[in-house]
Simulated assay, not measured.
Amino acid sequence: MESVKNQEQLLSERFEVAYNQVHDALRGLVKINDDRFVVLVKVGAKRYQVIETFKKDLEQYAKLRNAIVHEKIEVGFYIAEPNEKVVIHIEKIANILSQPNYALSIASKDVVYFDDRDKILKVTSAIKDHGYSKFPVYQNNKCIGLLTSSSIVKWLARNMKNGSVNLANIRIFDIMKFEKAHPIDFVSKEINIFEVENIFEKSHKKKQKLECVIITENGRPEEKPLGIVTPWDLIEIDYTVE
């Protein structure tokens, strides 16, 4: 009987520890003046997909936590007990929020990029081989923007004669003249998923469409791209835990 009681107490203690870890992580992520758990969850769910994924669970866990902590009859005696499945689940959530993956883990890593002096035929081959539609372009070893397949089509439309165009001597800088500016950002490989989400969120608040975030060694445009994160990459993150 005593071992059962100790096991129940251990589950309650584990739940409290995990709950507090989640609370601390929410404070660090959401960063508002209201410190209440449920408020942090509500506000955070609008900013971060991961919090939205666990929103209903966290709201229920807040109620359970109140029952566990505020309705104690005496030290070490809990009026409500979480079951093991609940404890394991909130511990997994705490781990995800407290130790987020690096953004590089969700980035497209086989980055195809070009120098602006490269021939455009090199780009069309890459489109055929990889199916990509956007490519970082470098000038003097510094990223100067993105080349998109749509700008190539626009250039072709303007330069086509009698239904054809000779691309043999056309270089990327010829096409870049027709390329509109695409907002991009550069971050170091140490940045985590939540920080990248925040970058896109800030851009959205400014009513700017951030095309992508390019990950480099130290977050500088002069460095080789290690990965690219687009808004679509964030949407496809699977935060669910069994």
Rank of each mutant, 00 (worst) to 15 (best):
240 T>V: 04
226 L>S: 04
95 N>A: 07
174 D>Q: 06
143 C>R: 07
223 E>D: 06
122 K>D: 14
168 A>Q: 11
12 S>A: 15
12 S>L: 14
141 N>M: 11
62 A>P: 00
84 E>I: 09
239 Y>I: 00
151 S>K: 06
151 S>Q: 07
197 E>Q: 13
89 H>A: 07
160 M>F: 11
22 V>Q: 00
89 H>W: 05
211 E>W: 08
226 L>K: 08
70 H>M: 05
141 N>P: 02
156 L>I: 13
229 V>I: 15
160 M>R: 11
96 I>G: 03
162 N>Q: 09
50 V>Y: 04
107 A>T: 08
115 D>Y: 07
52 E>G: 05
206 K>A: 13
7 Q>P: 00
35 D>K: 11
169 N>F: 08
45 A>I: 00
39 V>M: 05
95 N>Q: 12
97 L>M: 09
200 F>E: 06
143 C>E: 02
223 E>H: 02
130 H>T: 14
189 K>M: 06
189 K>S: 09
51 I>T: 01
159 N>P: 02
205 K>S: 12
215 I>R: 04
97 L>F: 11
225 P>E: 01
235 I>S: 03
128 K>H: 11
167 L>W: 07
113 Y>N: 05
82 P>E: 08
166 N>E: 12
170 I>P: 04
142 K>L: 04
154 K>V: 09
182 H>F: 07
32 I>S: 08
79 I>L: 14
14 R>H: 11
67 A>H: 10
194 F>N: 05
235 I>H: 01
142 K>W: 02
201 E>K: 11
187 V>R: 10
15 F>Q: 01
150 S>P: 02
38 V>R: 08
212 C>E: 06
109 K>H: 12
161 K>I: 09
12 S>Q: 12
123 V>D: 06
89 H>M: 06
22 V>L: 02
157 A>L: 13
82 P>I: 05
64 L>Y: 00
61 Y>H: 09
84 E>A: 09
85 K>V: 11
39 V>C: 01
208 Q>C: 04
173 F>H: 14
13 E>V: 08
160 M>K: 12
143 C>V: 09
241 V>N: 01
151 S>D: 12
97 L>W: 04
208 Q>H: 07
215 I>A: 01
111 V>D: 10
217 E>I: 01
13 E>R: 11
204 H>W: 07
201 E>Q: 10
235 I>D: 02
94 A>L: 12
115 D>Q: 10
238 D>H: 06
226 L>M: 14
160 M>Q: 11
94 A>Y: 09
11 L>F: 13
30 V>T: 01
19 Y>S: 07
183 P>Q: 12
103 A>H: 02
42 K>P: 00
125 S>P: 01
77 F>K: 10
18 A>F: 07
18 A>N: 07
135 F>S: 00
26 L>K: 02
172 I>D: 05
49 Q>Y: 03
158 R>L: 15
